[in-house]
Computed example of a mutant assay.
Amino acid sequence: MKAVVMTDTGGPEVLDLQELPEPPISRPTQIKVRLHTAGINPIDTKLRARGLFYGATPPAILGCDGAGEVVAIGDEVTRFQPGDKVWFCHGGLGREQGNYAQFTVLDECRAEFMPARINFPEVGATPLALITAWEALYDRGRLEEGQTVLIHAGAGGVGHIAIQLAKIRGARVITTVSSAEKADFVRELGADIVVNYRTDDLEAIVMEHTEGRGVDLVFDTVGPETFRQSLPLIREYGSIVTILDPGEGLVTAEARNRNLSIAFTLMLTPALKDLREALAHQGEILRLGGEWMSEGRLKTHVSRILQLEEAPLAHRLIEDGHTLGKMVLMTG
């Protein structure tokens, strides 16, 4: 099979298209999948640049998101048959093979049936971003109908899904973007108030639209400076959820005085620590999210579809930070 192999840590040039043996089914509960698409995520670029989890070393195949067709099953598989179309977030962290390849093998409990009437590029681009946004807004942030949420980087892979999940929950959405093009994009997704952080006064706009109280919830997908700047924008007893390390030297006096809840979301934790109940919950997220996709209530915007050998280009584009929504690799 063809696969993109991370041959070393470093820049995108360490990603090399190679011919490898197809992975075999080694346990009776596993399924073998012919991959059609693999999602590209920022975690892929970080692992390539700084190293893998589990103490693993290259060579390795990256890519957590995948979608494809079951081609073989183990003797104890009960949920799937050859020909079934599946999607999943599995592998690519250093222990199991990732999805920058034409085939992969995984336990049947880690896969879900693809949502009906949705194409492979959209489905393959979705799992990690959907689970991240869901856990941040619904599980950690406990977003409720009628609340106001500030979603940073709303045009990004996680952000644009978070906007839609917030609207499904019945919340009002304020979001930040960096250009007029991205502003138009997030408005189409349902964002109520759009702030260009390069030109607009975010604090003034938030306070204007919350009658001086601040938002109920902030979802930070950017990093330390954004995290710190967000604390004064949250109402008393409100919450902030971040998917990143808020950085060293963080002063939390203001958060304490305002009785804020601070939460973290790393959707990879269940896979890294083999937390079965949490992994099952993530499967439920894919099932319900897939139903919403089939109903047209939730959509993943795929801005660019690339071929497998273009994985280095995909990494460069992500690191440049100028993409709308998600990108995918066509693997087969």
Rank of each mutant, 00 (worst) to 15 (best):
G190T: 12
R50D: 11
R27Y: 06
A263H: 09
G91I: 00
G55H: 09
E144T: 14
I305Y: 00
E203L: 11
V123C: 11
A3N: 07
L165M: 00
A72T: 08
A136Y: 00
I193S: 04
L202Y: 11
W87M: 03
G212P: 06
Q229K: 13
T331W: 01
V86C: 09
I168W: 00
E188I: 15
L244R: 13
H301P: 04
D220E: 02
Q30T: 03
E19L: 04
I61C: 12
T226F: 00
I240P: 00
T300H: 10
V194N: 05
D192F: 08
E319Q: 15
M330E: 11
E310I: 12
N257G: 14
A191Q: 07
L298S: 03
K85M: 09
T37N: 15
T210Q: 10
R48D: 07
C64T: 15
I285S: 04
V86Q: 06
A180P: 11
K182I: 04
E145Q: 13
A253T: 15
T199G: 13
N196I: 07
P121N: 10
V105W: 02
V77L: 14
G55P: 11
L260E: 08
V5E: 05
A101V: 11
F120Y: 12
R48M: 08
P59K: 11
G98Y: 00
T242C: 01
I118K: 06
E22Q: 15
T199F: 12
G83P: 07
M207N: 15
A3E: 08
Y100V: 06
R213K: 12
P246E: 02
E203H: 13
A166D: 01
A166T: 01
S239N: 05
M1E: 10
M1G: 12
R110T: 06
T176F: 01
